[in-house]
């Protein structure tokens, strides 16, 4: 049987090759045929998840809720020291120095990233800003968000911290963060669907062992590094459930 693995579309483009290397490594370790399907859009990926086309996924916390609670996916592991944090940034020349400086009817540029948008909106709350009294300018990616800040068409923009950190010095010299989340417990995780365990020769415990020890040999370690990770930490189902509970508090 051929299985399909996918990655949350918010991964850094720098690591596309790394995910293909990981897929090759995983096929060798499991002796299973796994196709890597990458998506540009969260919406299209969700359609395929709902249609039962995905067996393994590196999921963002936003989608983990649906995958675990509705689709019976199991949490396997999360990369070490890689929590998902969001930033609100402004043009470096602007007079905005804290969230409370932003006022009603301001323009907020966002990328198509539901998790970052959710955390970003929470960080706007102290300024009495919400979806009803701001204008959201949704962009294809974070470079476009930065562009709107630089040309002055947006007052502020939401960024995944990792995406901001990966931007060029030129962009970062013109775009300044005014607040950064420090949530630390919200993170992407690797999930496996029930069809994989039913139809492959590997069980949950062995899969966890496989990922959490892969940094112990040179091939595994170099594969991890190609994805920007140092190692996988085991994630229990309760760890994932608790993270989902926390995400639930973000949604009104």
């Amino acid at each position: 049987m051929k299985f399909t693995m996918t990655v949350s579309p918010d991964f850094s483009p720098d690591y596309i090759a790394g995910w293909y290397i990981f897929n090759t490594w995983l096929q060798k370790q499991t002796n299973e045929s796994i196709h890597l399907e990458l998506y540009n859009s969260f919406e299209k990926q969700r359609e395929d998840i709902k249609a039962g086309k995905i067996d393994l996924i590196y999921a963002n916390p936003y989608d983990a809720s649906m995958l675990i609670r509705d689709k019976g996916f199991v949490a396997i592991a999360a990369p070490d020291n890689k929590s998902d944090e969001a930033m609100i940034c402004v043009n470096n020349e602007s007079d905005y120095h804290c969230v409370e400086d932003l006022k009603e009817k301001c323009n907020i540029a966002t990328a198509d990233d539901p998790e970052v948008s959710t955390i970003g909106m929470i960080m706007l709350e102290p300024a009495d800003l919400n979806a009803e009294n701001i204008t959201v300018l949704e962009q294809k990616n974070y470079v476009m968000v930065a562009k709107h800040l630089i040309n002055g068409s947006a007052d502020a923009g939401f960024f995944l911290k990792e995406a901001y950190d990966d931007m060029s010095k030129f962009i970062k010299s013109q775009v300044r963060p005014i607040v950064t989340s420090q949530i630390s417990v919200i993170k992407h995780s690797f999930l496996v669907g029930p069809s994989f365990f039913e139809n492959s020769g590997i069980n949950e415990s062995d899969f966890k062992e496989l990922l959490t020890t892969m940094h112990e040999n040179m091939k595994g370690l170099s594969t991890l590094e190609s994805m920007g990770f140092s190692l996988w930490n085991e994630q229990s189902q309760e760890d994932a459930e608790f993270m989902i509970d926390l995400m639930d508090t973000f949604v009104s």
Binding site: I122, M123, E125, P126, E241, L246, T249
Partner: peptide, 19 residues
Amino acid sequence: NVREGKLVGFASVRRKPSR
């Protein structure tokens, strides 16, 4: 916090409020 249909506890998240 509901696990397998059973209430096992509560989670509380506090964030910065509006003045």
